[in-house]
């Protein structure tokens, strides 16, 4: 798979990574090598092999539906860069 510079820019945008123009060739090269490994894995015949969603051979444990958490807003908000009236504040977002 060819990792052209546009694909690198688009991938960086989707991941919200500010990638300097100068680093794009190097990142393209690294992604190319990662994809080469993926291509190798893809070539393996997995017909009839069940999908493995998790490496542990365990089932999801379930939790009873009872309230266990109480209001800890003060503590939890202490590390927020900006908060007011009990709300987290972020740069304005409007679609």
């Amino acid at each position: 798979m060819a990792f052209d510079h546009d694909t690198v820019r688009r991938t960086a945008h989707l991941a919200r990574i500010a990638l300097p123009q100068t680093e794009i060739p190097a990142v393209a090269d690294q992604l190319e090598r990662i994809m080469a490994l993926v291509e190798e894995l893809r070539a393996i015949d997995t017909k009839g092999v069940p999908t493995m969603a998790h490496p542990l051979d365990l089932d999801q444990p379930l939790r009873p539906d009872t309230v266990g958490n109480h209001d800890q807003r003060e503590v939890l908000m202490a590390s927020a860069p900006a908060a007011e009236h009990g709300l987290f504040l972020v740069p304005k977002v409007i679609e």
């Binding site: 939790r63 266990g68 800890q72 807003r73 939890l76 908000m77 009990g86 709300l87």
Partner: peptide
Amino acid sequence: GCPTAFGAEPNSHTCPVCLAMPGALPVLN
């Protein structure tokens, strides 16, 4: 285990899991 009740004070029904604090793990209801 945070309550789902409607109309509470903002962010009073939150915990490290639903706030996405690093290391917090989800357990299915």
